[in-house]
Amino acid sequence: MRKLSALLSTGLMAGALLTTTAAAHAAPAVTTVITQDVSDVDSTEPKPATAHCPPGMVVTGGGFSTATGVGNDGSVVMDELIIRDTFVTGTAYEDANGTSKNWGVTVMAVCSTPLPGYEIKLGRSTTLGSEHEKPAVATCSPGKVVVGGGFAVTGAAGDVVVDELLPTRTQVFTKAFEGKAGTTKNWFLDAYAVCAFEPQGWEIVSKGGPIDSFAKMTSFECPVGKRVLGPMFDLTGSLGQAHMMSLLPSDFPDHEVSLGALEDDDGTPNSWGLNNWQVCAN
């Protein structure tokens, strides 16, 4: 009986030790806040803005709006949403036709308590030329998952439209097209993947939208109890004739992301769609 009691006691202690060890390595729940910065509102370009995280927090994703002011009539293009450890920088340009209206850009940073294994990875398009379309892919280190992403076009200054920012478990895909006027400039595209060891409750969710030839707005929430880490998007079928107007994450009360997209200022007969993608966690 003593041996059985001793074995049971040892087994219970071992079970407690295993439970404690597992708990010690379990991903902690995250706390997020969203910050923003607003550019000047006038009819000059380019327009940059930089949103900084509070001390002790890191960037997991970003957002933007080119509808700040009243001037975005389809003539303003978001050129970059660059992700850094503690801030997000975005820049917008007028397209080839330009506009005399006053416009501005808002840039947002989704900030989180530090995540174990946090890193930012860069992937660049393989060509530097005047090709009509370029993809770029950023890949997380082994054992890590995507929590957010960003993009940057270099060398086109408003003549190129970013068409998608798509997450998978371990990669961020982005794609850009030359706009309606094309360009002879040599340009390239960067994708940013924000990565970490898998946070508690991590998942990718998405919502498709209608396919037609009209301006579009859509919103979508993370599942109940989860918060947005990485807001993302993709346009389908527009092929450079429509572009993102807004990618707006919200941290209270519903942790939703709102998207808006416009056709360029002379429109397109193409039927196209706008899809909402989010990386969420507890």
Rank of each mutant, 00 (worst) to 15 (best):
G209W: 00
V161Q: 02
G69L: 08
K175S: 09
N102I: 01
P199D: 09
M244P: 03
G179W: 03
D163V: 04
H52N: 10
T86M: 07
D265L: 07
S141W: 04
K134D: 00
T268Q: 09
V279G: 06
T91N: 03
I83G: 00
A16P: 00
T99R: 00
G62D: 02
G208T: 13
E119F: 05
K47D: 02
P55G: 11
T218A: 13
S100V: 11
Y118L: 04
E178F: 03
A157S: 11
D40R: 15
V59N: 01
D159F: 00
D42F: 11
G61N: 06
V76K: 03
P46Q: 08
A191D: 06
G15H: 08
K101D: 15
A191W: 07
G240Q: 05
S246R: 15
D42V: 11
A16S: 13
P116R: 10
V162S: 03
L165Q: 05
L247V: 07
V161F: 06
I211G: 00
G74H: 04
V76S: 05
I204W: 10
E45K: 08
D254W: 11
G143I: 04
F252T: 13
V41S: 01
T106K: 14
G237S: 13
S39I: 10
I82Q: 02
H52I: 00
D159Q: 05
M108R: 13
K185I: 00
S43K: 13
E133Y: 14
H132N: 14
A16L: 14
H243N: 12
R124Y: 12
T32Q: 12
H132C: 02
A92E: 05
G155P: 07
N276P: 06
N97K: 08
T268W: 04
P253A: 10
S9K: 14
L4V: 15
